[in-house]
Design a binder for these strands. Sequence first.
DNA 1: CGATCGTTTGAGGTTCCTCAACAAGTGTGG
DNA 2: CCACACTTGTTGAGGAACCTCAAACGATCG
Lengths: 227, 227
Amino acid sequence: MAIVSSLVSLPAAFALTCDLPSAVEHLASRTHYHKGDTIYYQDGPAEYGYRIVTGAARECALLADGRRQVLDFLMPGDVFGFCAPGVHRFSGEIIAEATMVARYPRHRVEMLAESDPEVARRLRQLAFEAIGRLQTRMTVLSRTTALEKVSTFLLEMADRSASNAKNSIALPMSRYDIADYLALSVETVSRTLTALRQRRAITFTGARLVSIIDRGLLQWCSENCAL
Amino acid sequence: MAIVSSLVSLPAAFALTCDLPSAVEHLASRTHYHKGDTIYYQDGPAEYGYRIVTGAARECALLADGRRQVLDFLMPGDVFGFCAPGVHRFSGEIIAEATMVARYPRHRVEMLAESDPEVARRLRQLAFEAIGRLQTRMTVLSRTTALEKVSTFLLEMADRSASNAKNSIALPMSRYDIADYLALSVETVSRTLTALRQRRAITFTGARLVSIIDRGLLQWCSENCAL
DNA sequence: CGATCGTTTGAGGTTCCTCAACAAGTGTGG
DNA sequence: CCACACTTGTTGAGGAACCTCAAACGATCG
């Protein structure tokens, strides 16, 4: 399995979006990955932070008994890997075909943060946002039925993925990924999607192309659950 | 319901433990709370960060349908409330009778971080630790049976609470709190604890006083699940 | 074309939730 | 002091939701 397809150090002028302060972006190098590539490995040294430029990835953990857990899906603009304490507790894996990832040497960013309050502030802000996202995710994982989980997931993806078409979702991940993200079995994810389709909350253009028909119904399902 | 029992601004010399840089501790004021008090409210303004000095608290969310979710238990030394974006997304509630909480004005701490790299670094570090804790918690919530959840919970509490007696746990929270923390029903929590007692993994000195007899068995239950 | 992967659907079993009752501890007021 | 309500914790019975096992179908790829 190819780990790194091509490593290109581009000058910062090529930056599509400057999510981080320019002083940090100057430290970045960009890599083009293919589906299935691993950016970093669980228990491997955590020397870099990352940002998705285009494409998509997942952060996942392999449990002792072989089960897999998807902790987060990473979409364009998402910054990750900065908070790892020495070693990565999870692995970062590419799920979309043409994915571009910006890489930042953590040690040098840390040094930058020591002298540049703006960098420090931005890092803090990113960490706080990550905490908020994780807390929201916890409220979804806990206390929810399959219908609530899947509905919430679709709304989340509609929000995060397409900036233009709010009701058209191109899911970059498989049903297995969704299942491991929501702590459900693949079959339950599939059945729940079918149920949502039969209730005319969504339609499928393809297996991974979802259109939201009735957003109100979807939101109702994501909160209220009981059908 | 009493919200704030007594508000005492103590000089930093009274600090029991200085978890934050002394420049930050100088901004702290300390409050003594009683069981049931609320430190801050969901959707209320987030002007302060907090640290538990003694006692225990919980951070919890009230869902639309009335269900409650405990996002975290807060034990002595735990810093929280710094990452709230303007308003608190959850409420902070005291669960132990005599609980002392240190309070830090967020705005002034932020200003301090702008000029003092050490403060900024410590805040970053705290945020990163919080992220790690949340990620661990997610792996517990997902993909686990009741036995796994409760076993993991007991081990976590044994680790966090008592510094001296590693195998004796004084749980400050009720079974309801545990249930809402693990996303289980109270009955399941109770039954699972009984099961662990019958298997001689733990014993009860009281309803909230647990002793670990067979830590290996408990760890096995927390990972392997299937009995 | 065969093989593998991803997705969907069906049947059966297990876990956990819900409803219900009971016991122990605590506080209140007569 | 005791009756009473209330809280907290435990246990039982029944049912619903979800997981597991199994099979079938379409798509992709060598």
